[in-house]
Design a protein around this nucleic acid. Structure first.
Lengths: 338, 338
DNA sequence: GCAAAAAATGTAAGGGCTTGCATTTCGCTG
DNA sequence: CAGCGAAATGCAAGCCCTTACATTTTTTGC
């Protein structure tokens, strides 16, 4: 299992091919700067030795890595998967590699991951949302690492982002729900403290309530950690509220699916007894029964545009501009009249 | 956004702290080899400069990265997420970092990812399943990168793995289903060509059928790509088969959930008209309605054990030994008598 | 208070690659 | 075929760390 012969280096390839290391390097990185026959010799030598360039050495010498880091709150469910997939595809098409890390929604972990990716030489970073310790932004500026934010869009923000207006999206949904006659609303939210998307979504509902003259403090608000079971548990708390809500918004589809499961377990009919509304429109939303009414986020478009923006910035020095993408209400079967 | 001052290096820290680079390096990597006051000075300098060590340089100098690569077929659904999470936690506890890459079930992509992770200096690799191009194993041996396989267990295999017996697990489930009276069986399988887990699961059913005197070629076998929609489409094909099967096995829960959705869309009652059986027991299985009968895989245990084994190997030079974990049938509500 | 051991620190040699610049080779033109 | 510009290649200086070894400082025992 352990080979005794040493790991081949550029030098070994050069010697075997009978050329200099510079030529080998160019044959690998800029093939058309090298004569055809030379290139063939080099490739043969590479194949024969099973050579693989040492990334660290390369990064150090070239001062770039063609790597872009993405840090997301969780990989456990598909919320970020589709967008990230599109992001990665876009990068790949342009010769960049994506490195992902996840934070389990812990700001400390995020900070650690940011440092780790920067140390690993990420040429740029994709982060979710705006809100984080300013010291981190200082660090990133100091390290000269461009940052693009996503999953949120605030035209007033100082940092560029590719995302959508969480507040407006949720407000639109809430208006719809209110228009259907719902008056007693509840929200099962992800933890808002460190999560600007969650708090924006909450704001959206409150604004719709105020606009409809409902008094935004009548909202039955429950905050919980992320997860299907957490959504289920939160649903119990919401249903225990007096007066019992007729429509339960959820900060994301994962929570909504948990709520929906719990409703079934308790024999509460959806949407007969209560309506449940999600956010994100992940695949899950169409699989559960009844199919989930939710806010569709154009994940792939968002990921793709983020990738394009970052590549353009890195390659051509184009400034990173804010880009807004648009959500859409998806009315399926968990929403009905009260 | 772009700082003009250059990115701080170890040397800068050393100068500012008034010590040598060696001392700074030690202060970072082996804090207790350095006097208390010196360490404080160094830390202050690091903080002041916003210094972050250059991973590439460090990897090159130290000839290890404390990084372990994991390559999985997909991140899109939760199949591998939980196991990987546990794997990562175990590594983290021991000072290692995990780097994930996904292949979209493409062998070529896997090969590329393997090379990329090796180039990035992965000290070891975690791969899914046994079956792959032997040249890759040669390459890894040549690069002296230890490999641990997982998600499969074959005591006869030459490579060590931490996993479960896919064939036996599926066979056990099939025996159960046959015992309940089902005679016309179908299987919606992931593509078996490059996927030894999928083909082992298929074999398991066939063996159970043979043992029960059913004639394993009466199995209605449909192969499809991975995905909920793919599972749904495959379900249509299976249901069109004459005679119509009474029990539909699925190679994994994602396909099963797709099949289940399609059944509902078509007004086919589950388990009244047809039983649907999954494999993996991911979170999804409990959320769908009716809750999915499936084979439980101890994902967390498997991930944890894989992490432990790899850490022990890297740190103490302990040999990588095969470890088997055990699956369990989970009888929920999609399986009933024919 | 001194010698010897232990602790702390410094010195300097790489580690594998890229790239600016210098040199050689090649293909043409006149 | 001399002469010239372009293409191909080579040379060698870094890039930023770690670590074996050497040196200095501190501690310890008597």
């Amino acid at each position: 299992m352990t080979s005794q012969r040493p790991i081949p280096t550029l030098q070994d390839v050069a010697t075997l091919a009978g050329v200099s290391t510079a030529t080998v390097s160019r044959a690998i990185n800029f093939p058309d700067q090298v004569a055809h026959v030379t290139r063939d010799k080099v490739n043969a030598a590479i194949a024969e030795l099973g050579y693989s360039p040492n990334f660290g050495a390369r990064a150090m010498a070239a001062r770039r890595t063609n790597t872009i880091g993405a840090i997301i709150p969780t990989m456990e469910n598909a919320i970020f998967a589709r967008g990230l997939q599109a992001f990665q595809e876009e990068l790949r098409r342009n010769g960049y590699t994506m490195l992902v890390a996840s934070t389990a929604y812990q700001p400390d972990t995020e900070e650690e991951q940011i440092r780790s990716l920067v140390a690993r030489g990420a040429d740029a970073l994709l982060l979710i949302g705006y809100r984080r310790n300013p010291a981190i932004y200082d660090f990133l500026d100091g390290q000269d690492v461009p940052v693009l934010l996503t999953w949120a869009f605030d035209p007033a923000a100082t940092r560029p982002s590719v995302g959508f207006n969480n507040s407006a999206a949720m407000q639109e949904m809430a208006e719809k729900v209110i228009e259907m006659g719902h008056r007693r609303l509840a929200l099962i939210s992800a933890e808002t403290a460190q999560n600007d998307r969650a708090s924006a979504r909450c704001d959206g509902i409150r604004q719709a309530m105020t606009a409809a003259g409902l008094g935004s403090d009548s909202l039955c608000f429950v905050e919980t950690k992320y997860g299907i079971n957490e959504g289920a548990a939160a649903f119990d708390r919401v249903m225990a509220h007096v007066p019992r809500p007729t429509a339960v918004f959820c900060g994301n589809d994962v929570l909504a699916v948990g709520a929906l499961r719990r409703a079934r377990e308790c024999g509460i009919s959806v949407p007969g007894d209560v309506s449940i509304i999600g956010f994100d429109d992940i695949e899950l939303a169409q699989v559960v029964y009844p199919a989930l009414t939710t806010v569709h986020v154009p994940h792939r478009e968002m990921g793709r545009k983020a990738g394009q923006a970052l590549v353009k910035h890195l390659r051509d020095g184009a400034a990173l501009e804010p880009i807004e993408v648009h959500t859409k209400l998806v009315l399926r079967n968990t929403l009905g009249p009260p």
